[in-house]
């Protein structure tokens, strides 16, 4: 039995209408197996973020189909999205409120206890800043790295089965990057699947179990880490060959 949690077929997304329209996703096909860490790479403008936005329901596709956790009816997809946590472009944070209040708003929406909020704050290593900072200081006073950690905390709050992370390493310092790598691997062991879009190929190489290379709105290369390893090629070489660089 297939254990695909995402099946995307012939996805089309265009922005604008008429002569000014621009097709960003052009008949894209993709599958994500439960337990995978899918590394999504490609040049700026390749359509990576738009693909993630389509999955998250931020933008609506113009054609094709998206199946999430076995649900393909577009009118019911929102129910499956409760199993997804993520950061797309920037963390969904109200910067005028404190970290605690931001988490509390999401916790109320999902019917989650304060205990779980404390748990995720611990997981993302924000508790070291103290209760006063977390409960009183508005998030706009936080560093970029702290905001990113808070975004990850929000994504983790509902114990998601799938995490969608768009450039998650933005603003993280070297320690933060190492922490993030461990977090991803740890959560993956607990059964969480990932789609991680990043330009940092070497970092992605450390965690991904499969890769998708996007160019001009399509996935032009798709390979598992195992196959890549067996081929003797590293991911950077594979990427260059598929995209046609050097």
């Amino acid at each position: 039995m297939s254990d695909n949690i995402i099946i995307i077929e012939n996805l089309i997304k265009q922005y604008g209408k008429g002569s000014k329209s621009k097709e960003v996703i052009k008949g894209l096909n993709m599958q994500l197996v439960r337990g995978d860490i899918f590394g999504l790479v490609g040049r700026n403008g390749a359509g990576k973020t738009t693909l993630l936005k389509c999955i998250a329901g931020i933008v609506l596709p113009n054609g094709g189909s998206i199946e999430l956790f076995g649900e393909s009816n577009p009118k019911k997809l929102h129910i499956s999205r409760a199993k997804i946590g993520g950061i797309i472009e920037k963390p969904p944070i109200d910067e005028d409120l404190s970290a605690w209040d931001n988490l509390k708003i999401y916790a109320i929406r999902m019917g989650i206890s304060d205990e779980r909020i404390r748990e995720v704050l611990e997981t993302v290593d924000l508790t070291c800043h103290g209760n006063a900072v977390l409960k009183r200081a508005p998030v706009k006073t936080f560093s970029l790295g702290m905001k990113q950690r808070l975004g990850i905390a929000i994504a983790l709050l509902g114990k998601p089965e799938l995490m969608i992370l768009d450039e998650p390493l933005n603003g993280l310092d070297p320690e933060g990057i190492m922490w993030f790598r461990e977090l991803v691997l740890d959560l993956n062991k607990q059964g969480v699947s990932f789609i991680i879009s990043s330009h940092l190929l070497r970092e992605l190489n450390e965690v991904a179990t499969c890769y998708g290379i996007m160019k001009s709105g399509q996935i032009i290369g798709n390979i598992t880490a195992d196959k890549l390893h067996k081929s003797g090629e590293n991911f950077e070489e594979y990427y260059k060959r598929i995209v046609g660089i050097g």
Binding site: I58, H78, S80, R81, P92, I93
Partner: peptide
Amino acid sequence: AENYAKGTWYGEFLNGYAR
């Protein structure tokens, strides 16, 4: 209106609610 500027709408979509 603030939800557009702050990019917080998708957080609500990912909580599993219909628009």
